[in-house]
Design a protein around this nucleic acid. Structure first.
Length: 168
DNA sequence: TTGCTAACCTAATCACCTC
DNA sequence: GAGGTGATTAGGTTAGCAA
């Protein structure tokens, strides 16, 4: 997986402080993990509120726990399957958080920041989040997706030689 | 120094929206 | 239905901290 631009190649800017979970917090987390290793957005929010932590910290903890316990595949959405079995019209299981809508001015700010620094540290992300008016984790995800898009485009360009190259 | 693990990365995929 | 994009995942790496 490690290619150019991967964590191995880039200069890591781990600025955020390492969370130290209390014994009580770990107890709650482990209990929740045993019940549901793939908690929905709502459950993560509830846990975060209960433990006075931020949602993404919970998300990262579950992510690391699944890796630690060798979870390889996400299970089929049980709630959806159950409701289908009961013949209930469920359009979406709503596992995911609602999409964040970025206005063109917000996107302009983010794109400018992306050009300046594709790997902003937590401080920069928080600053940007303030400017744009969305939570910092949304900025983090936005940068991840944009970098991903950039890598795909670059790969495509590498696979398909440009017209100039074909001419010359 | 070493082992554990939070934080972070990419790549792939899902879910939703717009055209 | 296709394409764009935000959200989530697995799998991997990096680095902080306690023993």
């Amino acid at each position: 997986m490690a290619q150019d631009g991967s964590p191995k190649a880039v200069n890591h800017r781990r600025c955020s402080t390492r969370t130290k979970f209390t014994k009580d917090q770990l107890t709650v987390l482990i209990r929740a993990f045993n019940q549901e290793p793939y908690p929905s957005y709502n459950i993560r929010q509830k846990l975060a509120l209960e433990m006075n932590l931020e949602g993404p910290i919970i998300q990262t903890w579950f992510q690391n726990q699944r890796a630690k316990h060798g979870f390889q595949r996400r299970p089929e959405p049980e709630d959806l399957a159950a409701s289908q079995a009961q013949d209930q019209p469920v359009k979406s299981p709503r596992r995911w958080r609602p999409h964040t809508i970025y206005t063109s001015s917000r996107l302009h700010t983010l794109n400018t920041a992306l050009k300046n620094d594709p790997y902003p540290g937590v401080d920069s992300r928080e600053q940007l989040a303030k400017e744009v008016g969305v939570p910092e984790p949304r900025v983090h995800v936005w940068f991840q997706n944009r970098r991903s898009k950039f890598f795909v485009q670059r790969k495509k360009e590498a696979d398909e030689p440009s017209e100039q190259e074909q001419d010359g």
